[in-house]
Simulated scan of single mutants.
Amino acid sequence: MALVVLAVDDEPPALDELAYLLDRQADVAEVHTAGDATNALRELNERRIDAIFLDINMPGLSGLELAGVLTRYAEPPAVVFVTAHEGKAVDAFEVGAVDYLLKPLREERLAQAISRVIAAGEGSPRPPEMTAQRPAGGGDEVIPVELSGVTSLVRRDSISWVEAVGDYARLHSATGSHLVRIPLSTLAARWQDHGFHRVHRSYLVALPMVTGLRTSGSSTLVCVRANGASETVELPVSRRQLRELKDRLVRDPMRELKATTEDASQR
């Protein structure tokens, strides 16, 4: 079993050393890295990861908190803690860690951890084409966002619409507005099959939040419930997207669409 692993440590020299040692392991096919929990979650949502080798003390979400988040995934990666602190082993195994390694790392000890990861995975093989890991229960993606040094998790199903801000995107959700370092084009492609539609080069909307379409002169506006509230925002729809948007709205059960569209047409 050739593993795809993710190394996470907020100290660059330690991260480089961990990635180097993992890459030397015969059973490791790919090594990806992240300097904090936010980027680790982004990697986990971008690609299949079999095991995560994780420091405990990190800014934002700690390693233990990140491991707790992973327990809610339908197909969680195996977790191995790599730390200089001996006193957190009990907490580590309470969140389901496969192994607990102390720094400085020894290659033979790391090899034992790899063997334990493989043994743990043999009982529950993963689909080889799985490219993103979703939380269990609702099966919905979570997006890590940072505000004033605090990392929060925003569920995709809480997002009403997204706007492009250069190479960033601003998520408008039930928890507020959040700027993330992900291009709108990436989110549009990733969420196309999860109820989102790109109505304009600058806007992506959640179809369940659409309450109607309104014509204003030669332009068409889509009415979107703002952050799950009763208020709505109106966003422009490009001409080339209008037909597909209407088709998707007809296919998807929009309870409020017909009444709201009729009301808008009478304004």
Rank of each mutant, 00 (worst) to 15 (best):
G137L: 03
V90R: 04
H172L: 00
W191C: 03
G149R: 06
S124Y: 13
K258Q: 11
S219Y: 12
D263M: 06
L184G: 01
V69W: 14
L221A: 06
K246R: 15
L3W: 04
E163Q: 08
E262I: 11
A120T: 12
L66M: 09
A19C: 14
T260D: 13
T215A: 12
I159K: 07
L102K: 09
T220N: 12
W161E: 00
P13D: 15
S152I: 08
A2P: 09
S202F: 00
P59V: 13
S124L: 12
A51S: 03
V222T: 04
D247M: 11
P208G: 06
I49L: 13
S185H: 08
L15D: 00
G123A: 10
G87H: 14
T33I: 10
P127T: 01
I114K: 13
R239V: 09
T38I: 11
R267M: 13
A34K: 08
P135F: 08
P128I: 01
P135W: 07
V98N: 00
G149L: 08
I118K: 12
D157S: 14
G138I: 00
A7K: 13
F196V: 00
I114Q: 06
V142A: 07
R239N: 11
T215I: 07
S177H: 02
T186F: 02
S158M: 05
N45E: 14
G195D: 04
P125N: 09
S158F: 02
V95K: 12
A34Q: 08
D10H: 10
G96W: 01
W161F: 00
H200M: 02
